[in-house]
Write a protein that binds this DNA or RNA. Structure first.
Lengths: 189, 189
DNA sequence: TTCGTCATGTAATGCGTTACATGATTAA
DNA sequence: TTAATCATGTAACGCATTACATGACGAA
């Protein structure tokens, strides 16, 4: 019962179709919600049936037709209710952290490789988020934009995503350094 | 297929029962995995059936009996395989971020209240993690412990949790400041 | 002619959440 | 006597993932 709200919030930026939305959920929105395309299509169908969004078909030449959706007044009301309800604590689920938790019992080389991969991935997201932020604020400075802009929601969540990925990257790098140091110490004995 | 590994990794710290494990999953382990007690009991049963952990009953007076588990060799092997397999990208799911994404369409006062609540919660976790880290490293400095300690997995994941919660707290506070500023600007008009 | 992009789904299965259930002990 | 702690579950439902399916266009 929460994906619906994530979809509603994402649709506030204007009419879109499932395909576009799926891409958004794979990059920007993915800092706070992630899901597969299939679920989006299913959720869009449900949301439309419940009257929280309304869709219309756009006929295209040379391309498959697409269904675009926008949030209805009922949808906005639903978002209001959701915002007022107490939020569940956020949760992270991360395979990599599970592996590090078992660090003393698994092969360090394997861990280091995965941490390195994650650090690279995090850096790529950092670059992407910085670019996204620049394009959202345009000519303005961040401060100006946040004070005067009229659509700051996505900017604020993107800032959280950016900080999160920086944290990821830095932690991965630190952890690699520590594991390497221990590898060297063990090899010496 | 991933809760099993989180449970296995958590059981590396020694024999425990479901109840104790549930508490761990509510605090420390909760930085990288979260789940309800019911699922833990179910997962423990499954893991035992699959031979990855073995349990024994401890009869207690004045208390309900309990079943404690430890990881078997097969369980360790399973963890090894898991560590070697490529990790899925981590994901965050956060109601509060969904609400902030919709910031321009919902009542700022409500958002501010929730952000404030979250900042307080994050601070509480920060305090808890700092205490946990101190107790894990004992008399040693962090550097000494990470170089010489023989069980650093939980320490490393706790460091990530700490950084995460600091990020949460700081972002909440910043976001509150921005929303308040905008409220004041709007009131003036 | 092969791959990537656009575009939307169904079906089966498995994982996760909510609600419900029990029952004794100890501290306030 | 009320609430918290200890201790473990079942049952129903709903959400999420994986695999499968289709089909046309444009670029290499």
């Amino acid at each position: 019962m929460a994906l619906r709200h994530a979809v509603l919030a994402a649709l506030l930026d204007g009419e879109t179709n499932g395909y576009e939305l799926a891409k958004t959920f794979d990059v920007g929105v993915a800092n706070f919600w992630y899901t597969q395309p299939q679920q989006l299509y299913a959720e869009l169908t449900r949301l439309e049936k419940d009257g929280l969004i309304s869709g219309r078909e756009i006929v295209q030449d040379n391309r498959p037709n697409k269904r675009v959706f926008r949030v209805t007044d009922a949808g906005l009301a639903e978002l209001d209710d959701f915002a007022a309800a107490s939020a569940k604590p956020s949760f992270v689920r991360d395979d990599l952290l599970v592996k590090v938790q078992a660090a003393d019992h698994v092969d360090p080389a394997v861990l280091i490789a995965q941490l390195d991969e994650r650090a690279t991935f995090a850096q790529a997201k950092i670059d992407l988020f910085e670019q996204l932020l620049r394009s959202m604020r345009g000519e303005r400075t961040e401060e100006e934009f946040l004070h005067e802009g009229d659509r700051i929601g996505p900017y604020l969540t993107c800032l959280r995503g950016l900080a999160f990925e920086r944290g990821n990257r830095d932690w991965c790098r630190n952890t690699i350094t520590i594991l390497r140091h221990r590898q060297a110490a063990t090899a010496q004995r």
